[in-house]
Write a protein that binds this DNA or RNA. Structure first.
Length: 606
DNA sequence: GCCGTTTTCGGCCCGACTGTTTTCAGTCG
C-alpha cells in the first residue's frame, strides 16, 4: 500500500498531532492536581512533548501499528492514543476530567500557581476558576490558607494580570532577536568593560527556535551585583519578578520576560551549555553525567562518589566543547539541542555537518518591481552579488494572484529580454554571476496553475505557491497541492503550508502525503526564510529529507534588505539537521541547473 | 507510566528564588 493510500484509509474525524499532544498535556495537569504519582505525571508530559514534535502524522503511525515506536510512548499511552484516534475520546481521560473542574486546571496557567496551590484553593476554599481566584485574592480570603499571606495574594493577583496581558502567544523569532540585541547593547553601554567580561543571549534564541517564550541571557562578571543593578534599571524594564546575586528575572514594557544569569569565568562552559539546550536535552545530559559518576549543574560537574573521582571533586569548563568532550560527546550546534537524537550521534561521533550561510551560492525565489517588489531587477541583482551569490532567480508573481500585477506569458517574454541584457553585461565583464529566468506561479483554487505549461517550460526555475484558499478542507487543499507537485514543469513548492507565524495558522495540508509525492517526483521543497514564515518548519524539513526530498532555502525578498532574512532560513535548515548536499542552492550554478533539468524528465530534456 | 552501553526492575535532573517559615515547600525554568 502506498503511503498516501494509508493516510486515506484512516477513517473517523481527523485528529491532529497537536490535538493529541494537548490532550496528553491536559491529562498530565489533571493527574498533578489529583496528586498522582509524579513519575506518571512526567510520563504523560514527556509523551505530550514527543507527540507535539513528531515529524509525521500520528494517524499514519497508528495505522501502521507503530505508536510505541515514539520515544516516550509506551504500551499504556499508545493504547490511549489509539482509542482517541478511533473514537474521538478516551474513557479513562473522560473520568479524570469529570473529577476536576476545568477552571482548576486553568488556574495552573497563572504564574506562581502550581498543582499544590490549585488543589488547595479548590479543596479548601472552593475556588474553581481564575475569576473566582481573583475575587478571593481581592477579598483577602487567600490568607486564610496556612502558609499564605498578603504577599502571596498580591503575587497571585499580579500573575493573573500578567497571564491575561501576555496571552499564550510566543514572540516570533524575527521580533525577539532584534529585541534581545538591543538589551545586550543597552547593558554593555551601562557598565564599564571590565565589569562585564562576557555577555551572550542563550536559550531558545540561541537555538533559533521559531518563536520565543522568554529571553535568556548569560554573563560573566566579577561584580554580579553591579550587573544585576544595571539590568534591573534598564529603561526597557517594566517590573522585576525576582532578583538575587546569581539570577534576575524582569518583565519588559513589551510584556517579554527576560532572565539574566551571572557566573564566574571558569563556570562559563557549563552555564552556556545549561542555558542553551531545551529542557529534554539538558535532562538527558544530566543523566549521562550521572551514569559516569558526575552531577551536572549550571556551574560545574561534581563527583557523586559512584565513579572514579572522589566524592565532591569539582570540574570546571571555560567553554562548552570541553564539557561535552569530558562526557565523551562531540560539541553539538545549538540548533540541534532539542533531544531529537543528537546526543546519541554525538556519542558515536556521527553528527552531520550542517549547512551554513556561507554554503549558499544563490537564491531561487525573489521579487522585483515587475510584480510586487520594491527594487528593480538590476538592484536586486546587485544585492545578490553583494552577498557573494553566483546566481539569483527573478521569480515574480504570475497572473492569478488578484492583488498584484502578476506576469502573463507576454510580460514574461519582455522580462526575459531585460534579464538577457543584464546577463550579457556581466558575461562581458567576466563576472561570475547570472540571473535566472523564474516565476512564482500562482496555484489556483482548483490546483491549475497561473501559467500554461509552454510558458513554464521556457523558464529556468518554476516555484509554485498557494496564496489563496488556504482555508480549504484537508482533502481539497491536499489534492490541489498534489496536482501541482505532479506537474513536471514545477521545480519548487513554495512556502507549502502558507502559515504566517502568530497571525495565520498553517493550512490543513496533509504535509506527509505531499512530501511523499515530492520525493517521488523530485519536486524541491522550499524553506521560506522569512522569519514570519519559516515554511517548511524545522520538523517538516527534516522529514522531507528523510523521505528523500531536496530543499531550497529562499528569502523570498521583495526588496534588497529582504535577502538578509536568509540567516533565519539557514537556522531552520540547521534545526532540521540539513547538510549542504540536501540544499540545492548550495550547488554551483551548472550542477543546480542540471539537477532541475534531470528532474523535469525526458520531455523537457529533448 | 516509561525505559535500558551497569538494569525487564528500580530507578526516574538540578538549583535559585520566594514567602512564611525558624528549616522548608512550592514554583519555575
Amino acid at each position: 500500500m502506498s503511503p498516501s493510500a494509508k493516510s486515506q484509509a484512516v477513517g473517523s474525524p481527523h485528529i491532529t498531532n497537536r490535538e493529541v499532544a494537548a490532550e496528553l498535556a491536559l491529562v498530565a495537569d489533571l493527574l498533578q492536581i489529583v496528586e498522582a504519582n509524579r513519575f506518571r505525571v512526567m510520563a504523560f508530559q514527556n509523551a505530550a512533548e514527543a507527540v507535539r514534535t513528531l515529524g509525521q502524522d500520528i494517524n499514519i503511525l497508528h495505522a501502521e501499528g507503530q505508536l510505541e515506536s515514539i520515544h516516550g510512548v509506551g504500551e499504556a499511552i499508545a493504547k490511549a492514543i489509539a482509542e482517541m484516534l478511533e473514537t474521538g475520546q478516551v474513557q479513562e481521560f473522560e473520568k479524570l476530567k469529570a473529577e476536576v473542574p476545568i477552571g482548576v486546571v486553568e488556574m495552573l496557567h497563572v504564574p506562581d500557581v502550581g498543582p499544590k496551590t490549585a488543589r488547595r484553593l479548590w479543596q479548601e476554599l472552593n475556588v474553581t476558576s481564575v475569576d473566582a481566584l481573583r475575587e478571593a485574592a481581592e477579598a483577602g480570603k487567600l490568607r486564610e490558607l496556612k502558609g499564605f499571606g498578603a504577599k502571596s495574594e498580591q503575587k497571585i493577583l499580579r500573575g493573573i494580570e500578567l497571564a491575561a496581558r501576555r496571552s499564550d502567544d510566543r514572540i516570533p523569532l524575527g521580533e525577539a532577536r532584534p529585541l534581545a540585541q538591543s538589551l545586550v547593547t543597552s547593558l554593555r553601554a551601562r557598565l564599564p568593560e571590565r565589569a562585564l567580561q562576557r555577555l551572550e543571549v542563550t536559550g531558545s534564541l540561541r537555538r533559533w527556535r521559531e518563536t520565543i517564550g522568554d529571553v535568556d541571557m548569560l554573563a560573566v562578571s566579577d561584580t554580579p551585583d553591579a550587573v544585576m543593578e544595571a539590568f534591573r534599571t534598564l529603561p526597557q524594564v517594566e517590573s522585576v519578578l525576582g532578583s538575587g546575586g546569581a539570577k534576575t528575572s524582569v518583565v519588559l514594557t513589551t510584556g517579554m520576560r527576560v532572565d539574566l544569569l551571572v557566573v564566574e569565568a571558569k563556570q562559563w562552559g557549563a552555564a552556556l551549555q545549561y542555558f542553551t539546550g531545551n529542557k529534554e536535552h539538558n535532562i538527558e545530559m544530566r543523566e549521562i553525567a550521572l551514569r559516569q559518576g558526575w552531577s551536572l549543574n549550571e556551574k560545574s560537574l561534581t563527583a557523586t562518589g559512584s565513579g572514579k573521582a572522589p566524592e565532591g571533586e569539582e570540574r570546571f569548563f571555560e567553554d562548552e566543547a570541553d564539557l561535552y568532550a569530558f562526557l565523551g560527546l562531540d560539541w553539538m550546534p545549538p540548533e540541534m539541542r532539542e533531544n531529537r537524537g543528537e546526543i546519541n550521534l554525538a556519542r558515536r561521533h556521527q553528527l552531520p555537518t550542517l549547512v551554513t550561510l556561507g554554503d549558499i551560492r544563490g537564491e531561487l525565489h525573489g521579487h522585483t518591481t515587475w510584480s510586487d517588489g520594491a527594487a528593480d531587477i538590476a538592484e536586486m541583482a546587485d544585492a545578490a552579488r553583494g552577498r557573494g551569490y553566483a546566481y539569483w532567480s527573478v521569480s515574480d508573481h504570475s497572473v492569478g494572484l488578484g492583488m498584484v500585477g502578476g506576469l502573463d506569458p507576454e510580460r514574461l517574454q519582455a522580462q526575459a529580454a531585460e534579464i538577457a541584457k543584464l546577463n550579457e553585461r556581466w558575461a562581458n565583464q567576466g563576472e561570475d554571476f547570472r540571473l535566472l529566468r523564474g516565476c512564482e506561479v500562482e496555484v489556483l483554487a482548483d490546483g491549475t496553475l497561473g501559467l500554461p505549461d509552454e510558458a513554464m517550460a521556457a523558464l529556468d526555475v518554476v516555484v509554485a505557491s498557494i496564496h489563496s484558499g488556504l482555508r480549504q478542507d484537508r482533502e481539497t487543499i491536499t489534492a490541489r497541492c498534489l496536482k501541482v507537485v505532479y506537474n513536471p514543469h514545477v521545480d519548487i513548492l513554495g512556502h507549502p503550508t502558507g502559515r504566517i507565524i502568530g497571525v495565520r495558522p498553517p493550512s490543513e495540508l496533509d504535509v506527509e502525503r505531499v512530501l511523499h509525492a515530492c520525493a517521488e517526483t523530485g519536486t524541491v521543497v522550499e524553506i521560506n526564510a522569512h522569519p514570519s514564515r519559516l515554511d517548511l518548519n524545522d520538523v517538516y524539513a527534516r522529514r522531507a529529507v528523510e523521505l528523500g526530498c531536496k530543499i531550497a532555502i529562499n528569502s523570498d525578498a521583495h526588496e534588497r534588505a529582504g535577502m538578509e532574512m536568509m540567516e533565519y532560513g539557514i537556522a531552520t535548515a540547521r534545526r532540521a539537521w540539513l547538510r549542504p548536499q540536501d540544499v540545492i542552492n548550495t550547488y554551483p550554478l551548472e550542477q543546480m541547473l542540471g539537477f532541475l533539468k534531470d528532474r523535469r524528465g525526458p520531455v523537457q530534456r529533448a
